[in-house]
């Protein structure tokens, strides 16, 4: 199957595109791959320092905070970390799942109160490119008697294993839709003027719009008597966001390759081919 992709709108963390010459099954396969089969780096093991934390001569802090350690560990996992797709996954790494620089990134936090500990305090040990993309995520709040000291291990995983590996967010698609109305409708000129991108074609009697580009003026068409709706089940308009660990384009490219590899793997397994 050869699909065509036309990008309608793109930013570093969001993308809208049209994929054509595919079946509805393929579109759903792409959606599900985007949702649960993109690898991503996330904190998966956390070691807390328990007991007193001393700083300087006479400052003694307690390591117990208002949140349980489990809650803090869960929150650390949810923080998006910049991902390098060439990194190994743990199970298939040459270290045999022990943890090595090829599959693991180590982080640490040391903070004393009073302070709101944010993802900016999460320091990667080693390469600075793995510092969290978003520095403003609050992790825990400390009062003047508290401090936090921990080290954490991050490795690659997929969203089907845990929510912390969720990269693509709000993945949704709709059919390409064409709305044809008579040119004698009263408001038609205003809509053409306000949403010129949505006009596909027009002749002396009729004018055809598409809903591919979001516009509030298109909604007016649905109230017109002469409206004819045509949907095409080989063309789909997709939209999704990412959490910032990968760019939208990287995610899309990976998903398309992933589908191709999995389908060819399936074909190899079918006997008699």
């Amino acid at each position: 199957m050869t699909q065509n992709i036309k990008i309608i709108e793109e930013g570093s963390t969001h993308i809208t595109f049209e994929i054509s010459d595919v079946t509805p099954a393929y579109a759903n396969m792409l959606r599900r791959t985007l949702i649960n089969d993109i690898p991503k780096l996330a904190i998966s093991k956390v070691n807390f320092h328990h007991g007193e934390i001393r700083q300087g001569e006479d400052k003694v802090y307690s390591s117990s905070t208002s949140l349980f350690d489990e809650v803090i560990a869960s929150r650390l996992g949810m923080i998006p970390l910049p991902t390098d797709l060439s990194m190994n996954e743990r199970e298939s790494c040459s270290c045999g799942g022990q943890g090595c620089p090829l599959c693991t990134v180590n982080y640490s936090i040391f903070a004393v109160g009073p302070k709101v500990v944010t993802s900016g305090d999460l320091v990667p040990l080693g390469d600075a490119k793995f510092a969290p993309v978003d520095k403003d995520i609050p992790i825990v709040e400390l009062n003047e008697r508290q401090a936090i000291m921990l080290d954490a291990e991050a490795y690659m995983g997929r969203a089907k294993d845990h929510a912390r590996f969720q990269v693509a967010i709000g993945v949704a698609y709709r059919y390409h839709r064409e709305l044809t109305v008579s040119k004698r409708e009263p408001d038609i000129e205003e809509i053409v003027e306000k949403a010129p991108k949505n006009v596909i074609s027009q002749d002396d009697n009729e004018i055809t719009f598409t809903t591919d580009y979001p516009s509030k003026y298109i909604a007016k068409l649905y109230r017109m008597d002469s409206l004819k709706i045509k949907e095409d089940d080989t063309r789909f308009i997709f939209h999704f966001e990412t959490d910032g660990s990968l760019t939208a384009r990287e995610v899309l490219t990976y998903a398309l390759d992933r589908i191709k590899n999995r389908l060819s793997f399936l074909r190899e397994q079918v006997p008699g081919e």
Binding site: L67, R75, M78, I79, P80, S119, D134, D136, I137, P138, V140, E141, A159, A163, Q166, I169, G170, E241, D243, G244
Partner: peptide, 17 residues
């Protein structure tokens, strides 16, 4: 309690927002 880091339903990071 404290703001959850991600949206429960879709997974978008909302804590910094």
């Amino acid at each position: 309690m404290i703001i959850p880091i991600r949206c429960f339903s879709c997974g978008r990071v909302i804590a910094s927002d």
